[in-house]
Design a protein around this nucleic acid. Structure first.
Length: 878
RNA sequence: GGGCGCUUAGCUCAGCUGGAAGAGCAUCUCGUUUACACCGAGAGGGUCGGGAGUUCGAACCUCUCAGCGCCCACCA
């Protein structure tokens, strides 16, 4: 017995536990069927499920469940990411609560603490994914810091190094002073800020009253200046080129050089060049062989190369301005809108800093990654994201992969006594190789830097499947079928996976890449903790059920658009689940069961034929939509069928049959109902796995679990019954509409006549009388050949006229108005038809079918017009 | 500065290759009937951002203007 109410809480977790315990998410490796695989975009171990995950993972689960039901060998590979910076920050925050820093523990102890933290708290997000219904094969869960995956990281690192695609260089990099590490360009966010532009002057060497005027937003960097640049085309200033000027305060002499970087139109036309602290200046410095003077400590305080060692840049700036003012060298200070780089994790200002770092030669790796998208081996859905990808890949910069952190993959590099570098698989091998090289035992020092987190995520598509070992899973499931992820991660992850996979596997990591948008709040604002507008998916699940949230995501997912969260809509899909639940209860109460030998192709009754044909048509449409990643179309099609066709019409139409006494009809109808409900459960399952499973388990004895039930394929749709029922449904609607317009109380049971009925219509009237009368609430429905009297309300229906005798209660004024409106609308349509059909160009050039259809409509409208006019005529005198 | 996207009913949005404008929510009216009030029936509501063009025909294609959003780069 089904509960009276739909209460998802009662069964969702129980059902999930059963799936997992029964191994339902595991692929059948003995199967010879086609493989289908998805690797999950690994959430941070530190993470909590947010609405973005709910969308991303719902879409993946829909595809995974759909393909599983298609009988494919399906793997959804789960796991989490060690998320270097994020995780280190979380653990450091915890330490801070005890008044400790990571340095108090030391590197080894600290890493131990992180691992402990991971064991205790790292499972949150995977538990939450289970709540969502994600059918991942958890027995294969991986973590980017697992030994297996770490081995993959070391192996590929060494390989890239040996191929000259990883190198160490002293370069200007984005430095995060709070975290004390380099970060990649992608981890820097530019923020609009109102800053100041400082104008001041440097004295020219050997002259008492000559100066060169410069403008800068960062006067405190002047201690790192090694030149001032002027364009050779700058008529006003070019005479200074070749002279020297003096940096005040420190009285350092620097040259004035010619370089086009100095735009005569901008600022003062002269630019101070600080090669060690500005990316443009760095390039200028390289062109002119300028020295690089570093003025900052790793924590962004000024160093010994300045007069203000230990001071913050802000303080130093004030000091510098004060000193310049005192010396009479300040010209002016203006407000100046500018963009300042911030670390996206730490939130502090990023400083360009000269440091030794490791780089991946991304421009080389990008070539193959580009080629396979250009030739279609990997396709973006929607296709427009190709362009974004191309744009970025074609302008890609070397990728800084070293991080001065503790948590992450420590680089497999060992330094020997004369700084020779050894890259090996592990410590022992490195030692052995070094000893051999030197001919005696040497002390090795391991590189302390760790790798950018995205380095290991870049290998995710194959490292999780067992690479570098040749595993059965790798063999079976690589390349994966599709990657589903958000556009915000194309550069971070998709691009890196493409590069790494093409380099190592010589094959694409996934054949398709489905990109979805962001989940925003109700008003379209980006959700963020700082704005306080986040909605917790788990709370939503508690309130409405996971199925409602999932269906919401699916129904809103149209390609290339962000989704605004809407609680009322989620509630609507909970209502939808309730609706289905109640329909199933209706079936249960009426003993709708399906005999084992039931053949849905042999049903006789038109209603049953109709719903079965509709169900098959719906299945076909949903299949096609899912194959094309049209999630919203797929979801909405199922929704319409269940609510519109099955509940609103079919159930209402079969009530007289089920409550009647024709046992044969009753039996067929019960079986058809059961068959259709089963079909509904199958095609709805990928979207709403919980409620469908609960109903599947409670509406019949089953020999297969719903999660493994067969998805319908290649069915022939019997359209014979479609027209009959469409006619019937339209007639019922027309009668209901007429009743309502005539203000007939719901309790009234009028008679309706069908005048001018053709033979087909007449036949329908007798055949479907039993259906029509109760649904339209009629005393009786008959074909009529008598006279139309003035007390009859009239309405046009197809070729016939509906007549409803109202015995003196007819409201003639209302009736006149209604008919007049109808006439007006008909006339308007007729004008349109006449215009079109009167146009020789249309008749000649439009396809014949279109012209014929237009003619048919015109004729129909003409007939209807005549009828309405006649009706108006009859009541003209009342 | 470069690129991408959006503008359709009061709100949130569908509308695939151009052939009579759709859904959900909201609104209004009415509710016989034990599957369901988390419901049912009926109704109202849009010159598809403005303009021009291509076409027999444009929400859809082209151009242009306006507004909004996102990404990338840069601004001494």
């Amino acid at each position: 017995m089904l509960n009276k109410n739909y209460t998802p809480k009662d069964f969702e977790e129980k059902i999930y536990a059963d799936w997992e315990a029964s191994g339902d998410f595991k692929p059948d490796m003995r199967s010879k069927n086609e493989a289908f695989s998805i690797v999950i975009p690994p959430p941070n171990v530190t993470g909590y499920l947010h609405m973005g995950h709910a969308l991303d993972d719902t879409l993946q689960d829909i595809l995974v469940r759909y393909n599983r039901m298609l009988g494919k060998k399906v793997l959804w590979q789960p796991g989490t990411d060690h998320a270097g910076i994020a995780t280190q920050m979380v653990v450091e925050r915890n330490l801070a609560k005890e008044g400790l820093t990571k340095h108090d523990l030391g590197r080894e102890k600290f890493i131990e603490t992180v691992w402990k933290w991971k064991e205790h708290s790292g499972g949150t997000i995977t538990r939450q994914l289970r709540r969502l219904g994600a059918s991942c094969d958890w027995s294969r869960e991986r973590f980017t810091m697992d030994e297996g995956l770490s081995r993959a990281v070391r192996k590929i690192f060494v390989s890239l190094y040996k191929d000259g695609l990883i190198y160490k260089a002293k370069k200007l990099v984005n430095w995060d002073p709070k975290l004390g590490t380099a970060v990649s360009d992608l981890e820097v966010v530019q923020k609009e800020t109102l800053g100041k532009m400082y104008y001041y002057k440097y004295p020219i060497e050997g002259s008492k009253d000559e100066y060169i005027h410069i403008a800068t937003t960062r006067p405190e960097t002047m201690f790192g200046d090694t030149a001032v640049a002027v364009s050779k085309d700058n008529e006003k200033l070019k005479h200074l080129i070749g002279k020297n000027c003096i940096i005040p305060i420190i009285n350092k002499v620097i040259p004035i050089i010619a370089d086009d970087h100095a735009d005569p139109e901008k600022g003062t036309g002269a630019v101070k060049i600080t090669p060690a602290h500005d990316f443009n200046d760095f390039e200028v410095g390289k062109r002119h062989n300028l020295p690089q003077v570093n003025i900052l400590n790793p924590d962004a305080t000024l160093n010994e190369n300045t007069p203000y060692p230990g001071m913050s840049t802000k303080e130093a700036r004030e000091k510098t301005i004060a000193a310049l003012t005192e010396m009479g060298l300040m010209d002016k200070i203006e407000d100046h809108p500018m963009v300042i780089p911030y670390g996206d994790r730490s939130g502090v200002v990023i400083e360009p800093l000269m440091t030794d770092q490791w780089f991946v030669d991304a421009p080389v790796l990008a070539k193959e990654a580009l080629r396979v998208v250009e030739n279609g081996e990997m396709q973006f859905v929607p296709k427009s994201y190709e362009k974004t990808y191309y744009e970025w890949m074609r302008n890609i910069q070397p990728w800084c992969i070293s991080r001065q952190l503790w948590w992450g993959h420590q680089m497999p590099i060992w330094y020997g006594p004369d700084e020779t570098i050894f890259c090996e698989e592990n410590e022992a091998e490195a030692q052995a190789a070094a000893d051999k090289h030197y001919g005696h035992h040497v002390e090795l020092r391991r590189e302390t830097d760790v790798l950018d987190t995205w380095f290991s995520s870049g290998l995710w598509a194959f490292s999780t499947l067992g690479w570098p070992d040749k595993t059965e899973y790798l063999e079976t499931f690589y390349p994966t079928s599709v990657l589903v992820t958000g556009f915000d991660i194309i550069f971070f992850w998709v691009a890196r996976m493409m590069m790494m996979s093409m380099y190592m596997m010589k094959q694409v990591p996934f054949r398709k890449c489905y990109i979805h948008g962001l989940v925003r709040d109700e008003k379209g604002q980006k959700m963020s903790k700082s704005k306080g507008n986040t909605v917790d998916p788990i709370e939503t699940i508690e309130k409405y059920g996971a199925d409602a949230l999932r269906f919401f995501m699916a129904s809103m997912e149209t390609q290339g658009r962000d989704i605004n969260l809407s609680e009322s809509r989620i509630a609507g899909y909970r209502n939808f689940a309730t609706k289905l639940w109640n329909a199933a209860r209706f079936g249960e109460m009426n003993e709708c069961r399906k005999p084992a030998d039931f053949d849905e192709n042999s049903v006789k009754l038109p209603v049953n034929k109709w719903i079965i044909a509709k169900a098959k048509e719906t299945s076909r449409e949903v299949t096609s939509y899912l194959d094309n990643y049209r999630f919203s179309d797929a979801a909405n099609t199922v929704y319409q069928f269940i609510w519109g066709s099955f509940c609103d019409w079919y159930i209402e139409m079969i009530k007289p049959l089920l409550y009647g006494d024709n046992e044969a009809e009753k039996a067929e109808t019960r079986a058809s109902f059961a068959w259709t409900l089963d079909r509904i459960l199958v095609i709805l399952h990928p979207f709403m796995p919980f409620v469908t499973t609960e109903l599947w388990n409670n509406t019949a004895q089953r020999d297969v679990k719903l999660i493994h039930a067969a998805w319908p394929k290649d069915e022939t749709i019997d359209r014979s019954a479609m027209n009959d029922l469409d006619w019937t449904i339209d007639l019922i609607s027309a009668i209901r509409s007429l009743r309502s317009e005539m203000n007939l109380p719901a309790s009234a049971k009028p008679v309706v006549y069908l005048k001018d009925a053709g033979s087909q219509s007449a036949e329908y009237v007798s055949r479907f009388n039993k259906i029509i009368c109760p649904l339209a609430r009629l005393e009786k429905l008959e074909v009529y050949t008598g006279e139309v009297t003035s007390d009859m309300a009239q309405s046009v229906f197809r070729e016939c006229t509906l007549l409803m005798p109202l015995k003196g209660v007819i409201d003639f004024a209302a009736e006149k108005e209604r008919l007049s409106k109808e006439l007006e609308s008909l006339n308007k349509n007729l004008e349109g038809y006449a215009r079109k059909l009167g146009n020789p160009n249309f008749v000649e050039r439009a396809p014949a079918a279109v012209v014929a259809e237009e003619k048919r409509r015109q004729n129909e409208a003409l007939e209807n017009k005549a009828k309405v006019e006649a009706a108006l005529q009859r009541i003209a005198n009342f």
